[in-house]
Each structure stands twice: as structure tokens, then as C-alpha cells.
Amino acid sequence: MDALIQIKQLSKIYGTYFSRARVTSLRNISFDVKEGERVCLFGPNGAGKSTIMKAIMGLIKPTKGKVFVKGYDAQQSKLTIKKLIGYLPSELDFYANVNIKESLYHFGLLRGLKRAKALEETNRLLEMMGLSKWWDLSPQLMSSGMKQRFSLALALIGNPEIILFDEPISFIDVQGKMKIYQLVHDYVVNQNKTIIMCTHNIQDALIMSDRLIVIDRGEILIDGPITEVITERCKSMEIILTEEAPNPEEIKRILGDENYQLSGRKIMVQTEDALQLSTSLVNRLQENRIPVFSFRPFVEQRREKKKTNLKQRGKANHDSN
């Protein structure tokens, strides 16, 4: 089967040649996504996940490399590509004072639907998201869960073939998340849609996707079926806390005598069921209001790569001296 999305040697550097602060967001990233696949781009904040999404939609110009969606070059056929894609951004920003039905209908029209069809789709999506009772509410009066469902409806109107979720459920409670998971799952399974989502939460990735691409600092570390990645390649998980120096006694009191090592801000979990255990630890930390900065598989490859890079740099410096 041909790939629906092809990303070839994609690199992106933000900032101009003359800028003092030039940030390399992506470094030679290549991967394909097949039709009907559910892919999760997993990595910490600043890994380059959103940049990949933007490159797929043609919203940013890559410094190097190409993106093809259904054979169309993302830089040259932006409108055609945007017709194929529904996008759910991480920010829940809406139009104040305009009711949700009006906003959804407006998006339907802009996606090229005729008036009658747009109205029909609007009603169908409001019904599907459980928002039909509140059609005349403006988003500012809605709860976060309702906003999230409305945001999903905005992404799905016009029946796009590919759906991009940019950290879609990062700010809502477990119940709200389960509702969104269920809605997305029903929609995707029924209509064989392709999903690319990015998140830094492994639980979201596990439920929503069947392939995991782990990204860090603009590079792909691991790419494979999610179960394989987690059971065979993620036997170590690391939890990084936001506080600079958490009190180790306090952390130990909260986490109990589980199988983990605590050093500074990092908690390492290295067991056969590392994912399960670390998920439970994260939940316990959050219940006790200790904010978690990152929760990700610990990849030896990354450490080896760093070492190799440092060695190479050292060698180069030595040679030049």
C-alpha cells in the first residue's frame, strides 16, 4: 500500500541567517504514514512534534526536505492538502460571543460545503459530540470538556481524510479524556481515517494510536508498533519533575517502596512493567500536587548518541588544535 503521507529528510531551523537565536527544531526526519494508520508523535515539549504537524499542513517552510500528502507537495499544493486535513490545535481558543453552532457552520462553509450540507453536518457533529442541547452557548461559557469536544467537532467538519491532533487532551480530566477517546475511536474505526497525534503523555498515546514515533530534540529515536515499542523497547521510563529540588523524603513518602531510583529531579523506573509502574507513580505524584514536567521512555540509544557526538566533537577539536 502506498504511503498517504511521506516525510523525506525534513529539517527546520527557526530564525534567519542573521538571527542571534537560531533554533534547530527538526533534523533530517523521514517517515511514512499509511492510510488508516494511527500514529503518535511522542516526546517532551520542544521535541519538534508541532513543527512536523505544521510542515504536513504546509504552514511552515522546511529548511530542507519535502513533505508529500497523497502525492501532493505540501509547499506547492497547500489548499489541496488542507482540504484533506482536519486540525485540532492544542490551544482552546474560540470566537467569543459567537455560539458554537454558528462557528461550526462557518467552518463547514469554509471547508467548501454547500449551505444545506454544512447545516446538516453541523447538526450531526453537535449530536455526535453531545453538544446539541447547548448549541446556542458561546464557548466562553462552556466547561473545558465541552470546549474540547467542540474543538474536535471543528476539526472533523467537512469529513477530512487525515486528522492531526496537536496535544488534544492535555488539559482535561480523566472522564473528559475518556469521552474524547471514545468519540475519536468510534469515528476512526467506522470511517478508516488516518490520525497523527502528538503528545507527551504515554497514556494518551497508548489509547489513541497503534504506532509510536519517539522524538527528542528534532530527531526520531524510536519508530514502531506501540505495543512493541513499549514492551520491548521501553523497559525504562523516566519521570522528570518540574521543581528544581524536590524534597526526596517527601517524594519517597508519596511513592512508597516501589522499584524506582530517585536522583535530583529524575525518577527512573527500570522493570519489566516499567510503563504500568511509572504511570501509577505519575498519578500518585499528580494527586499530591507535585507537577510532572516530562514522562517518557528512557532510551539508551539517546545517551549513546550523545556520547558519540561528544566524542566526535572532542576529536574534531583535538584535530584542529
Partner: peptide, 16 residues
Amino acid sequence: KTANDSMKRYFALPVR
């Protein structure tokens, strides 16, 4: 500001 936030969504739509 308001429209700039909403424009993020516009830019993702098939609109020139």
C-alpha cells in the same frame, strides 16, 4: 490578538 488566535484555525483551513 483575538483574530490572531482564531487565525491559527483559519490557516489550517483550505482558504487562501
